[in-house]
Amino acid sequence: MDNDKIDVNYVADLARLQLTDEEVERFSSQLNDIIGYVRQLEGLDVTGIEAMAHATPVYDIMRADESRPGNGTQCALANAPEKSTDQFRVTRVVES
């Protein structure tokens, strides 16, 4: 990976972010600096070390399988930018 530079346009597309040309240029330079810095971890031998996802053990927490009130439709929709017939309005995903 020695000569890898981040392709900001490609990654921004994965992240669903529209960037201006100016942003692409500025972020490329800043992110390459940061990536250069974080690559110092490559110098560390981590053979046999367990990867840690959480600082404390995380368990599934079980509760009785009983129905209980939720927040309800109107509450869920309260902040929707667009809604109709008690549902979120989404942008069309199939070709017409």
């Binding site: 974080v38 971890l41 490559e42 560390l44 981590v46 070390i49 367990e50 990867a51 840690m52 996802a53 600082a55």
Partner: peptide
């Protein structure tokens, strides 16, 4: 790799 280094730090 970062998660492994996190273990070392802990």
């Amino acid at each position: 790799r970062a998660q492994k280094v996190r273990t070392l730090i802990r």
